[in-house]
Amino acid sequence: MTLQNRVTPWGEIVAAPARGRLMGNRGRLHGPDKRLGKARWRGKAWISCVLDFKERHREVMAKQSYTELFFSDEAVAIAAGHRPCAECRRVAFLRFRAAMARAFPELGPAPRAADMDMLLHAARTSDAPRARVRPFDLPRGAFCEGPGGEALLIWDGSAWRWSFGGYTPFSLDPARERDVLTPAPFLAALNHGCGLDLQPDLSGKVDD
């Protein structure tokens, strides 16, 4: 059975056979049958983790455990609203925290994870319409929505169409505004030097 645990740049959790390059969680969302209920988050600490850490082994969607979610890469993870884990991705977490401190001085020079999570969760659950900007005004690693509803990664002045199989180049009008998928606090972090720890594969090859 293909489990419903792959995450799109819209933050949706879907069933797909593609492998992920990062794992994360939003709490326990599944039942004993390893199927998701109606909830799409439990708690405010949405994180992304490495796949291999200290030789730990987990049964995916085990009873009384959190629901393991999988992302194509870190750009997808942050578009879906997941920050780096403070344990298994310590270096990425510290870089993200420093960028958040620069972007949001009210958090202090070394923000607590819980304080950042409060700010991030408010943006994820806001009912406000998505921001619209010219696509190439977005920072490297951000996503916007294309004219046909595609998820488009912006990277060094180019647009790339995302799918679970990989990225392909996409021609985009630079003057026309598009809906932004990456939540505003993550955009701010990218604009303040966060960068991506696990960069997308832009070879243009798509898996069958």
Rank of each mutant, 00 (worst) to 15 (best):
F164T: 01
H192I: 07
I13K: 00
T2F: 00
R134M: 09
A114Y: 04
P9E: 04
H57F: 12
H30A: 08
R132I: 03
G166P: 01
N191P: 00
R58V: 03
W160C: 07
F186N: 09
G141E: 03
V91T: 13
P105L: 07
A45N: 11
R6K: 04
A122W: 00
Y167M: 08
L172T: 01
A189S: 12
D127Y: 02
D73F: 15
D73N: 15
R178Y: 01
L22F: 01
L119N: 06
A184Y: 06
C85S: 13
A39L: 09
G31R: 10
F136L: 10
A15K: 00
A159S: 09
A77G: 12
F70H: 12
R40Q: 14
L198V: 15
F170P: 00
G43P: 09
L119T: 02
G37N: 11
R112G: 13
A142Y: 05
P183K: 09
Q64M: 12
G24H: 03
A80E: 09
F164C: 06
G149Q: 07
M1R: 00
D179K: 12
D117R: 09
A131L: 06
G165C: 06
S48Y: 08
A45T: 08
Y66Q: 09
R28G: 04
T125Q: 10
A16L: 02
R56D: 11
N191E: 15
